[in-house]
Design a binder for these strands. Sequence first.
DNA 1: CGGGCAATTGACGGTCTTCAATGAACGTGG
DNA 2: CCACGTTCATTGAAGACCGTCAATTGCCCG
Lengths: 227, 227
Amino acid sequence: MTACDTCSVRNHAICSALEPAELNSLNAIGRRRTLEAGEPLIWEGDDSILVANVIDGILKLSTGTEDGREQIVGVVYPADFIGRPFGATTRHSVTALTDARVCVFARADFDRFAGEHPGLEHKLLQRTLAELDRTRSWMLLLARKSAEEKIATFLLDMSERLAEPGSASLGRFDLPFSRQQIGDVLGLTIETVSRQMTKLKRDGVIDLPTRRAVAILDRAELEAIAG
Amino acid sequence: MTACDTCSVRNHAICSALEPAELNSLNAIGRRRTLEAGEPLIWEGDDSILVANVIDGILKLSTGTEDGREQIVGVVYPADFIGRPFGATTRHSVTALTDARVCVFARADFDRFAGEHPGLEHKLLQRTLAELDRTRSWMLLLARKSAEEKIATFLLDMSERLAEPGSASLGRFDLPFSRQQIGDVLGLTIETVSRQMTKLKRDGVIDLPTRRAVAILDRAELEAIAG
DNA sequence: CGGGCAATTGACGGTCTTCAATGAACGTGG
DNA sequence: CCACGTTCATTGAAGACCGTCAATTGCCCG
């Protein structure tokens, strides 16, 4: 009986490539760690000393310029992989957006283990290729879309990822981001984010019951705006 | 004696993971193909039916919105890998920027071969992880940098990739991009690209001997501008 | 030499940022 | 439970930057 046996992402994370005996070996080199919302896990420019699987919660990958401009370059969800195996340094920070639980490995240990388990590397490759596709799609948004299109695209993306399975209203969810963080994802200022959200609410496309909650009232219209 | 034996990227592309006998097998399922500048290799949204290694030349990966805005989401050089293994569709177009030679594989053949050769998958994983890092860095540029900073960053990036080994002047090279394509990389219009390049020339930071040529006169200043 | 395309240059306008103030939500302590 | 301070979000006004539209120049090729 190991921690893996009861792990909620056991069948979705890259670990799903492993046989029970192999999983035991992996479990032996990893450890659980909990993070509070806002707590950092890895700093940009650090020596790449650890990698991790997300068990629960949402984390952001971010980078910034010297003069303080920040950009969120990725968001990871349960079963996603974090960190930079086979590389000396980490090029972006990792910070918890919500309370989170992760399964952490020393990078050297993980690199060695992965080298001996091609199935694990295969899963990691698939995940990385999919992430690269998603990241490249996001570049189009950052470079070419208007503020209104960005917000609409963002809200649709969030609704797909966060829609509560039980909830009857598929278009209602709580954002794991502050307005500032939404700006950091979309390459906008907090004021522009606020104005565009208010505009969508005024036009009856969405509702904003609380600071963090969003309800999509007219999905077709939102999709049209997203472009 | 196979085509691989004389291949100029033999020791740099993912093929370098293979033993001679394995290389023979890979050679058997691949074929060479030449592309002229401007010629497409893969279209966005196509079924992912082929993957390739770049032998010679430079190609762009691009995507666009329905209303015609285009964005270049990646640029690949000799020894780089092209395409989307283990996935049903390709999410961006691939087009030659210069005359190019590539080593093409049917995706199904490549997927099978890769599954049987973990060393190859390992190389591909390393390459994909590095590409993801680079792509994420580029997001910061697209989302947060000014036009001037974008152009300066772009020119420095080009100078590193293109500097002729023999040339005494490391800061002189020919761009493989038109002004329009530079705009498509940086998320700018052709006019803004032109204006910023002219400004850098006027300020004595660079020289523009011909349409495609660039000479960096003051690298330190250019780096300062790049931010 | 001349046609055609790429690049440059100019004028103007819109979008988003910046700066600043107000308003709402949340937690703490009385 | 409410007063208060702090943080986050909203709103407003002004302006910078970049995009758009249009005209011109320069380069490359036949």
